[in-house]
Design a protein around this nucleic acid. Sequence first.
DNA 1: GAAGCATGTCAAGCTCGCTTTACATCAACT
DNA 2: AGTTGATGTAAAGCGAGCTTGACATGCTTC
Lengths: 70, 70
Amino acid sequence: MLPKVRNHVREYRAKRGWTQEELAEKVGVSRQSINSIENNRYVPSLPLALLFARAFGHPTDDIFSLETRK
Amino acid sequence: MLPKVRNHVREYRAKRGWTQEELAEKVGVSRQSINSIENNRYVPSLPLALLFARAFGHPTDDIFSLETRK
DNA sequence: GAAGCATGTCAAGCTCGCTTTACATCAACT
DNA sequence: AGTTGATGTAAAGCGAGCTTGACATGCTTC
């Protein structure tokens, strides 16, 4: 099993005053996808993670990190 | 459609003298997964990408990048 | 109280990441 | 020639990421 991933999408989005729908449009996915990621219902794909990094102007590793489980 | 992703897994692996199987063990996936990623048969998941970054000791954005396709 | 807007959540469906098993190729060595 | 190690590739199956469509909640604001 691959490890879990924590994300700070909601914090970065809120800091910019964007709605879930605005962020969804910027990165090209549905609003439900953003919502599901922020609420940890699932982990985004790599291309989507890189798009978040680009949209926020921060490195991918600042937004996503491996849970140091075990 | 989400954009394509380019990766430098083979270069980082080769620079360390690791076989595909050794890298597979380090990040916890099968040898075929490594092979498929290096040969661009598919794009790794985000947790796997973060594991590559950790194994290589380099930021995720150094190893993976969005293809500037439009 | 009605109307918007932002968010949460569910269901059905499709694609694709990753698995195991298996076989093929090529180089290096004995 | 035979063997071993590294790599390439294929098929079948499962689970997860993402979609659309729909409905429900809470907060403003009219």
